[in-house]
Amino acid sequence: MGKKSTSLLLAGLAAGAYAYFKKPENRDKAVEAFNSTKVKVNDFIETQKQNLQDRSNTDSSNSDTTVTGDVNEDYHLDEKDMVSEGALTSVQYYNEEAQERLDAKRNLQQGDN
């Protein structure tokens, strides 16, 4: 059932596209819209590349930040802080557990004496 409805949907879309692009003015509009979109996308990509390059040049002297293509610097710094705090929390937890085991062992040894 799903295959049949998908086939019908695609056939309907193809028929609609044919009917729309049959007129030369519609084809011209579509080509113009496509070319305009292509130019805008290329401009956006170039701008993003330039921004990334500018950030990497600015931040190369600052070793506390790591520049990546899709990560906001402020967020990345906060993320580093969270990781360092999390690492300290787990170390602290491990040290407390180890200390409790050591204290329990000492109490057992003192109780045996």
Rank of each mutant, 00 (worst) to 15 (best):
M1P: 10
G2F: 04
T6S: 03
T6A: 05
T6L: 02
S7R: 01
G12I: 00
A14P: 01
A14Y: 03
A15Y: 01
G16E: 00
G16T: 02
A17D: 02
Y18V: 00
Y20G: 01
Y20P: 04
F21I: 00
F21Q: 00
K23R: 04
P24G: 00
P24I: 00
E25G: 05
E25A: 11
E25I: 01
E25R: 07
N26M: 01
K29R: 03
A30W: 08
A30C: 09
V31N: 04
V31W: 05
E32N: 14
E32K: 15
T37I: 00
T37D: 05
T37Q: 11
K38N: 05
V39A: 15
K40P: 09
D43G: 13
D43F: 10
F44W: 14
F44R: 06
I45C: 14
I45H: 15
E46V: 11
E46G: 14
T47M: 10
T47W: 15
Q48W: 11
Q48F: 14
K49H: 14
N51M: 15
L52R: 02
L52E: 12
Q53L: 13
Q53M: 13
D54Y: 09
R55G: 15
R55W: 15
R55E: 14
S56I: 10
N57T: 12
T58C: 11
T58Q: 11
D59C: 14
S61M: 05
N62C: 04
T65Y: 13
V67M: 05
T68D: 02
T68L: 06
G69S: 05
D70K: 03
D70W: 05
V71T: 10
N72R: 01
E73P: 13
Y75T: 00
Y75L: 06
L77K: 06
E79R: 12
K80P: 08
D81I: 06
M82Q: 08
V83E: 03
V83C: 00
V83F: 09
S84M: 04
E85L: 01
G86A: 05
G86Y: 03
T89W: 12
T89R: 10
S90M: 07
V91L: 13
Q92W: 13
Q92I: 08
Q92E: 07
Y93N: 14
Y93R: 15
N95Y: 10
E96F: 13
E96T: 12
E96P: 11
E97D: 08
A98P: 02
Q99K: 10
E100R: 15
E100H: 15
R101E: 04
R101A: 08
L102S: 14
L102H: 14
D103Y: 07
D103A: 04
K105G: 06
K105I: 01
K105R: 09
R106Y: 07
R106Q: 07
N107T: 06
L108P: 07
L108M: 08
L108G: 13
L108E: 07
Q109P: 08
Q109V: 06
Q109N: 13
Q110M: 09
G111T: 08
G111N: 13
D112P: 13
D112H: 14
D112E: 12
